[in-house]
Design a protein around this nucleic acid. Sequence first.
DNA 1: CACGCGGCACGCC
DNA 2: GGGCGTGCCGCGT
Length: 104
Amino acid sequence: MEETLLLRLQKKLLEIPKGKVTTYIELAKALDMPHAARAIGTTCGRNPEPDVYPCFKVVRSDGKLGGFSAPGGLDEKVKRLSQEGIEVVDGKVSRLEECLHRFA
DNA sequence: CACGCGGCACGCC
DNA sequence: GGGCGTGCCGCGT
């Protein structure tokens, strides 16, 4: 099955429970590409439907949000994360360790 | 402790 | 088929 990275990424995004986030590294590892975190970011940016696939729930390994190509920009990303109950301060997720979802 | 640069894997032109 | 860009990461200054 030649599923695109985007498709597999979307599946993983849907596995993230509400109120949780994940990092590009975790996704990369979950997709057997532990060194391709950058590609994950690029793919998220190319995500055609960020409302269906919560690419905004993906943050950097250091807790920072990184960026957000969807309409509204980074501010919109912060809003959505806040809606999930995730506290975002100064462009980064506080309590990341508690909100971070890991793909077994 | 904070900032800056290079490298890396993957997608698209 | 080759090259560039990227929502990044890690290490060096």
